[in-house]
Amino acid sequence: MAKKKKATKKFTKSKPENTDKNLHDSILELLRITSTVLPDDIQEVVLDALHREQKDTSAQYAMQIIDKNIKLAETKSQPICQDTGTIVIKVYHPPGFFQLKFRKICEKAVVKATKLGYLRQNSVDSLTGKNDTMNVGNGHPQFHFIEHKKKGIDIKCMLKGGGCENVGAQYALPNTPLEAGRDLAGVRKVILDAIQKAQGRGCGPGTLGVCIGGDRGTGHIHAKDQLLRLMTDTNPIKELDDLEKDIVKTANKLGIGPMGFGGKTTLLGCKISHLNRLPASYYVSISYMCWAFRRQGVSLKTNNTISKWLY
């Protein structure tokens, strides 16, 4: 009898675990870490770049300051860059997931993160020019929901800066001035052209996400998705893997260097994928990510607390 009583008591006690609050807190922590700590794979390529640059050059100087900045942001738990960028949230969820509720909780976490200074007031009404002050507004934050077969929820977050977004590009092949045809040789030409045109303006050294095919909309989204891949991964398609490596190698011969000061590292990485296209069109969409490559992800337990960091 007593045992039973105890059991019900225990039941009522554990019932109030507020999984919505857990979700809010997990997203808040995800936002904090994304904004203040660069993932290991990115830090590694930044360090490689620093060591590659010649001594006493402005390129080395730029990389030293970047490296110092990354470390300082982490210890102070302050944003790596003052441009928070677009807050991109990717949610991988099982069937039967409530997207609207997730959105609401996530928006609350974004407001909180903004109030705490992990995110800057970065969302502006395109018509009135007014700052929404809490990073929530038409299309902000940017949500993408993807159903997966796993039981739990994974959330990925990327903060995509404005300066580097401005140097992104989309080419329709064939491109006559570049003599770029509808094949991988043509794709190579336009990617390299985009890198040359960007110079240091996207806060290089940068990383490219590229999509071959799709339409003007999906092409850019898929290009950006490539930035979620690990720097160290290998493209399963041999031709694309070769092209990725070739682009990085060739770009680094251009001499643009960190910040466009001249130097050995212009590009840290390049990730290419493809979508089907229409017979009438052949797009190459290129997303440029600055050195402040802020992305992170978490797997959640069933109670919505964090079980694992993804990068």
Binding site: I65, I66, K68, N69, L72, C81, G163, C203, M259, C290
Partner: peptide
């Protein structure tokens, strides 16, 4: 004079 883009923390210091 070109400052280092994005180096918010170092420059603020």
């Amino acid at each position: 004079m070109h400052a280092i883009g994005g180096a918010a923390q170092v420059l603020a210091e």
